[in-house]
Design a protein around this nucleic acid. Structure first.
Length: 431
RNA sequence: GUGGAUGUAGCUCAGUGGUAGAGCCCCGGAUUGUGGCUCCGGUGGUCGUGGGUUCGAUCCCCAUCAUCCACCCCA
């Protein structure tokens, strides 16, 4: 009998088990989401978790942090470079193109699933995390931008989060206008090179717009004086943005214009937005998205406008937990127990009979033996509203003892033939 | 990737240079067929892991892993 010296195998850093105590929260959230998507006419799409590396490199942008240092990339057995998806949009566009969903038509799609980024884990930031996202293809005007934002707003309302989140809004303009603005911005930064920090200097050539996003207080004053993207929009983007704002105003959705809002992925154009909260510490972005009119073409398709967002499920559930907004539900309606082992067969038979008669019933059958007392304890722990007790006497007279566990109703012997009827009357969630 | 804090029972945490304790949980009993409250008893720890200092380390030192916080990044 030697002690095991094998090294304990642990889960990968930043990748978490979802335990039975937490899964009801996820199911609560996912249920509301699924319903909402249907109500807004979005259809679910599921794509593989692994894609060719080039898909992400080309769509997200070669010089973004995600592509530069956060992707889980590995070689397939045949030498192909594959990557665990770091986000959902690229896969979605690829799948839509590949299956002809973009040919001469519009699409409203949503997806849900795990994403992978090799970042330093922290609360609200994990290496495997989950997103729910939507993507709409083929819509040119700002109405779909509004629709997408309104869908997210309704989700916050239904979850009770509306007072805890803020909508930040910006427009990046067309890619041409952005390029022109970029030159202007670089020129401005060059004049203030002495104020730029290391990171900013590096980005001057790679991604100067991201410098605007910096929280370095030493650069705050200089950034305040920088030319503003919103003042340099092209005419059509300007109009698009104004119309979107008017639509949101009409719908009663409050927003804050944030001229520094740039987003970390290169494919965005025109509308960008973020829903943020102050209740989660430094991981405050709970949902983010925007328009990516050039992406489909960039990936080899016909020019097709797109808008979408992605939200972080872990962060939202964390937020709901923090604010105590998740209703707790009992696991079972009824706990059926044989009083001793001689009654087990009768208990199994009765349980199956009830499950056939009442398909909605959540019935847990006691397994694992033990004293009568311990069986009763298990019944109590199960959270069930009622215990059904089956012993020698009940079997002899074809009854079962029905005992309320959560209130003072007197217990009674019910004929087995009447049991389904009685339970239907007693349990509140009867259809 | 950078800086900092923490790691003792399933959970929340005490504790000491001489190899450990509480509460909760779990199991059993007080109650031959009645849970929850109370009382009694019990199981359970190579003190994150690996080195080092020491007669002796859970405690001191180093490394490593994990979690948390900030930066960074982003969902």
């Amino acid at each position: 009998m030697s002690k095991s010296v094998a090294k304990k195998i642990q889960a990968i850093r930043g990748m978490n088990d979802l335990l039975p105590s937490e899964s009801p929260r996820w199911q609560f959230f996912e249920g509301i989401v699924r319903q909402l998507m249907q109500r807004y006419g979005f259809a679910e799409i599921r794509t593989p978790i692994v894609e060719q590396t080039a898909l992400f490199a080309r769509s997200i942008g070669e010089v973004t942090d995600i592509v530069e240092k956060e992707m889980y990339t590995f070689e397939d057995r045949n030498g192909d470079s594959l990557t665990l998806r770091p986000e959902g949009t690229a896969s979605c566009v690829r799948a839509a193109m590949e299956n002809g969903l973009l040919y001469n038509q519009t699409q409203r799609l949503w997806y849900q699933g795990p994403m992978f980024r090799h970042e330093r884990p922290q609360k609200g930031r994990y290496r495997q995390f989950h997103q729910v996202g939507i993507e709409a293809y083929g819509f040119e005007g700002p109405d779909i931008d509004a629709e997408v934002i309104l869908l997210s707003a309704r989700l916050w309302k239904e979850l009770g989060l509306m007072e805890h989140v803020t909508l930040e809004l910006n427009s990046l303009g067309s890619s041409e206008a952005r390029a022109a603005y970029r030159d202007k911005l670089v020129a401005y930064f060059e004049q203030h090179r002495d104020v730029l920090d290391e990171d900013a200097k590096r980005r001057l050539t790679s991604n100067p717009l991201r410098i605007l996003d910096s929280k370095n207080p030493a650069m705050a004053e200089m950034l305040d004086g920088a030319p503003r993207l919103l003042d340099n929009l092209d005419e059509p983007s300007q109009a698009h943005f104004e119309q979107l704002k008017a639509m949101l105003d009409a719908a009663g959705i409050a927003y804050v214009i944030n001229p520094r809002l740039v987003r970390g992925l290169d494919y965005y154009s025109r509308t960008v937005f973020e829903w943020t909260t102050t209740a989660l510490g430094s991981q405050g972005t709970v949902c983010a998205g925007g328009r990516y009119d050039g992406l489909v073409e960039q990936l080899g398709g016909k020019p097709t406008p797109g808008v979408g967002f992605a939200m972080g499920v872990e962060r939202l559930i964390l937020l709901l937990e923090t604010l105590d907004l998740i209703p707790d539900e009992a696991g079972s309606d009824v706990y059926l127990l044989a009083m001793d082992d001689t009654a087990t067969v009768a208990a199994i038979t009765l349980a199956e009979q009830l499950r056939s008669e009442l398909p909605w019933l959540r019935l847990q059958l006691h397994c694992g033996g033990g004293s009568f007392k311990s069986r009763m304890k298990k019944a109590d722990k199960s959270g069930a509203a009622y215990a059904l007790l089956l012993g020698e006497d009940e079997i002899a007279e074809h009854t079962v003892t029905l005992k309320a566990l959560r209130d003072d109703q007197a217990q009674q012997r019910v004929p087995q033939a009447m049991l389904a009827h009685t339970l239907s009357e007693r349990l509140p969630n009867t259809p």
